[in-house]
Amino acid sequence: MNGLGFLLSIVSSLLFPGIIAVTKAKLSGRKGPGIFQPLFDAARLFRKGSIYSVTTSIIFQIAPVIYFASIVVALLFMPFGQYKGFLSFEVDFVFFSYLLAVGKFVMIIGAMDTGSGFEGMGANREALYSMLVEPAFFILMGSLALLTNHTSFYSLFVHIHFDSVLSYLIALLAIYLFVQIAMVENSRIPIDDPKTHLELTMIHEVMVLDNSGFDMCLIHLATGLKFALYGGLIANFIFPDTWPLYTQIAVFLMVNLLFVIAVGFLEAFRARNKLEKNPKWILTLSSISMVVFLSVLVIVHKYFLE
């Protein structure tokens, strides 16, 4: 049963991009593609041949593979209620975060491998933003670790309890942060607009301009998986492990669904930031998680009121 979180995440990840697209389409009054369209796309890509730029080297070919693998392994850490993930150990979120960094690293150099100005730009933006969002995640995890006195995803989520107004506030802020970190990590609005056709303005999508076939299929699937990563964390964060299993599964899927629909809403009604504003905006995430940390210090009675 230890891999329950992993399996559920995989399942829900397949539908995520579709649901986001459908939400956005519905909100803007269009019919939109079906929920399964991204899956069909991926399947079609899997069958397709590839075209490689003569400028590229082995790096370009292996980057999507490593990227995909890094996300799948990161998903292996996903706990589920009282069940651990396949992999679970103390301070595993450090490994988790650095593993995702490996994926980003190879994608960045993979993009630079094509020698294209567009992809250089995308790679550069990705490098800058993912660098800035790192502290926010670590402070948040530090706060939760401090709150629960546990340091692995599994034990952290199992031991988290909310009982006072302050702790509810912290929970809200933490969820907000998780969602926003997910937006940055996935290069979505307001940081990036993946659905535009303008290669000059994008971050993640412009990095994969030259990818095709199997590689592109992996990249598409990875998008869903990355959402599932954060959706799963939020779900775990919310439901207590004391609930019966079936309720948990239902709630897990429900929270994931809500998360993705929320993303759809956010994307429909918000324009993306001016690029110059992004770093500052990401930095405020760190500031907010700092405030969370301070309030956790109050909860654990290290900072005495009065």
Partner: peptide
């Protein structure tokens, strides 16, 4: 995954061209 990719690439057509410009 690399192995899988190799297998897949054997079945399909692989082309080479300039970077998208």
């Amino acid at each position: 995954l690399w192995f899988l990719r190799r297998m897949q690439q054997k079945r399909v057509q692989i082309e080479h061209g300039p970077t998208w410009g």
